[in-house]
Amino acid sequence: MTARIDARFAKARAEGRAALVTYVMAGDPDPETALAVIRALPAAGADIIEVGLPFTDPMADGPAIQASGLRALKAGQDTAGTIDLVRRFRDGDAHTPIILMGYFNPIYQYGVERFLADAKAAGVDGLIVVDLPPEEDAELCLPALEAGLAFIRLATPTTDDKRLPAVLANTAGFVYYVSITGITGAATPDFGKVASAVERIKRHTDLPVVVGFGVKTGAHAAAIAQGADGVVVGTALVSALERSLVDGAAGPGTVEAVTGLVGELAAGVRSVAKG
């Protein structure tokens, strides 16, 4: 089920480094440009790609990702279109894991069974659904595992040792540690605290632990890569894309704006040798 994800972490480990996980929004600023961006990510240094499912009310996201989702929706992106985007990416790349990340309602309206079947067929490897804590596992997590898709859970600074086992129970692929209490793209985390939190989570699981929220530069990525198995960058890439737009539409440098930053982040991750 998690073959592509496992292989990627194994490859990074073999290369003595952490993995770089990049997030971009499906359909931002338009479906074709988003596909071009996603296709360019692996060569730029991304090991795993998170594709955002646009939603009108992303309660855990900051203004950058919120605006990104609204641009995508305005450009006509919907859940079916996002699954199609993955299918087209997968045609040219059999190895880079694709994780869909978003909120439950669009999936719920698409129909859970149908969504899982279509996503699996398109080559999706896993799901991150922000508003489904373990308490709501019956909604999507358990059906996803049954359908052969990893359900990747967020652990946060408020997830204490008592709660961690519940959070990790049905998690597959990797664990996503949210470095701050807050929304995406807000504060820069305290790297020391993050390192000890990663250590704490690793005491409870053998899964790779990746860290995201607030990682903006190659130096941040390097700092996180010291302890974590992977570094997630989202808002910084979405913001770079936004800055490249001309009158709200894709500009001549849109793809390069994203890949350029991914290159810097990949260099940051690769600057830290891991045993």
């Binding site: 439950f104 922000v130 804590p133 709501e136 967020l154 946060t156 408020t158 997830t159 709660r163």
Partner: peptide
Amino acid sequence: ETGHFGMFGGRFVAETLMPN
């Protein structure tokens, strides 16, 4: 006890908020 009225209700929130 899980906060449901029939199929409605529940706790669809980010993990950060769950302990709270």
